[in-house]
Nucleic acid binder design. Structure first.
Lengths: 334, 334
DNA sequence: CCGACGGGGTAATACGTATGACTAGCGCGA
DNA sequence: TCGCGCTAGTCATACGTATTACCCCGTCGG
């Protein structure tokens, strides 16, 4: 008996008085007709007694697969990725896969420096969410599916219909009578924000409205300042279209700082419909993105890819959720 | 040349006209004095040309370590765990470790059914956050550190000083003149919430105040209802102490539904100081917990444990952050 | 001129598992 | 009685890497 180190299948074999192969057969579950029930039982109890757990590295090597998928996200701080993980993990579990999450090993320090995989990359495939496409180079030949990163000719993708969602917001506000729009835009180089900006501009233009734009980082303080810049202009917008819900929270603050009622004097909309949207007062008009569904669809596509298939690109529609933060412009209080 | 499958070090060796050992020597970096610069260069270019990346499973098996640590959290939806991960990953990277995140494979279905590790458990150690201690059984002999799960005699722990934090809140409110307290409590069986409740009760009792308690789930709607039950009582509390920031958002909603001004007619406090705290209006008085520091300290302890050490339990103090949601009771508007 | 030495590389092996090939015993039909 | 098939296993091997022990050869000190 080894002093240090976990017991191996060989130890179990010795303890049970059988060969290592037999242990493997029994514990692998494929022993029907090969091992007698009595032997199987004695192997099981021996394994139990020794606290045996198979060495994953060895079985990964032998099987040539880890049955593990990596979900890569830009940051874990954003509330958006929780549901994505949940959806992916649900589908994965159904197929005997596990999901682990990680952000770029390099943090904010830019792209990879080492050409070799980080230790945690002993995986079968990658779900890369909200990535600049170029970042995929990291994965070399690893099967990958891009989530929320825009169409791609080389890699299967799952995207939200953000353009349609943004057009729905513009249409909703225009329908309420708004003509002067402000866009509090996330100054982040991700496909989704480019798509949102483009769709908003197109829809506003199509309806003959005006659009001013102010960029910010994705945090409340920065968003507040950006919104304030818009509201401080002569002839300010009557509706602030924000690139996501957190930015909308900043817009609320800007409005309040200027003594403007939401939605009485300025309408505000968000995007994503994260938890925050209903925590705010008034509750936020926004577009609900089916994040969990994206995780599920992404995992489905990745499994298909691992099976040698060619999964088709998928687009998941968002849904406009009208709440209390949008109203006709200059609503008379009387 | 193999049709399928990634190139191995043997392929690289053949391409460079050397032995597999040499490839391993060169790429392992320990070749000083063993391999001539010329050979090393030719190996490198061969590896580059073939797009070689070492098989992690094989090297894990050979080295007997994965240099990967698993961060286990109850849910990824809570904003709290992002910073924990960040802190852990920062320390880990400094020691050549990677961090992956996962939630219980079983989801909400209760404890493990399979006695063997999930596929993603090819890891050297575990950081288990906010866990019921019994759940640790899953990890058998895997080195583990408990985060935010209370003291433990068997396993190293890192905890927040939540009791002190909660007492600080009670002291702050009492100092403002509050005597009738309401506790909107998370009805979740985690150490941290038990500790919060106990500390609050003790401090209020010590100061001769009264305390009513109402439990809820950790979501806005449930918290709103729970807060509303407290505020609807005869002789209602003048201060609502909430178990976390999200619950405080629900308390805001309850107050507003009853036409009560925050903080003019009722003070509200949170806990954790997540992003939401400053997105709310008024901004939330709360206790800031150094989540990133917890991740960092936890990883430090785990590395110490993996080194054969016996890391001492650590407690990280929270800090009261007074913002606009707390004020003297029944503040005269005049 | 010979032995020691060191630079530059190779052969062999082990890590722990899963599995295909093989075999010993045994009952049974021909 | 012989061979055949079935049961209940065992043996051997391969997965891809890192590393230890070894080996060849040229050089240098004596």
């Amino acid at each position: 008996m080894p002093v240090a180190g976990r017991p191996t299948s060989k130890d179990v074999a010795q303890e049970a008085g059988v060969s290592q192969s037999t242990v493997s057969l029994v514990l692998g579950g494929k022993w029907s007709g090969r091992v007698s029930p009595a032997t199987a039982r004695s192997v099981r109890t021996a394994a139990e007694r020794l606290g045996y757990r198979p060495n994953q590295a060895a079985r990964n090597l032998r099987l040539g697969t880890t049955r593990t998928v990596l979900l890569m996200v830009p940051t874990l701080t954003a509330p958006f990725f929780g549901p994505v993980y949940t959806g992916a993990a649900r589908v994965a579990a159904r197929h005997g896969f596990g999901v682990v999450v990680s952000t770029w090993p390099d943090g904010a320090d830019g792209p990879a420096e080492s050409p070799f995989p980080a230790p945690h990359e002993a995986i079968d495939g990658v779900l890369a969410s909200s990535m600049p496409a170029v970042a995929l180079d990291r994965f070399h030949g690893t099967p990958a599916v891009l989530l929320d990163s825009g169409p791609d000719s080389d890699v299967p993708t799952v995207d939200f219909g953000v353009a349609a969602g943004m057009r729905a917001i513009a249409a909703h506000l225009a329908g309420l009578g708004h003509r002067r729009f402000g866009h509090v835009a996330a100054g982040v180089d991700q496909w989704t924000f480019h798509a949102r900006a483009e769709a908003l501009a197109a829809e506003v233009a199509a309806r003959g409205g005006t659009l001013e734009r102010s960029a910010c980082a994705i945090d409340v303080a920065s968003a507040r300042d950006a919104a304030q810049r818009l509201l401080a202009r002569p002839d300010p917008p009557t509706a602030l279209v924000c690139d996501d819900d957190l930015i909308a929270a900043g817009a609320y603050k800007a409005a309040r700082a200027l003594g403007l009622d939401v939605p009485g004097e300025v309408s505000v909309t968000g995007f994503d419909d994260v938890l925050l949207a209903t925590a705010l007062e008034p509750e936020l008009t926004t577009v609900r993105l089916p994040a969990e569904e994206m995780g599920a669809q992404g995992m489905t596509a990745l499994l298909e890819l691992l099976d040698g298939g060619r999964p088709a690109p998928r687009v998941l529609p968002g849904r406009l959720v009208v709440r209390g933060s949008s109203a006709p412009p200059r609503a008379p209080v009387l």
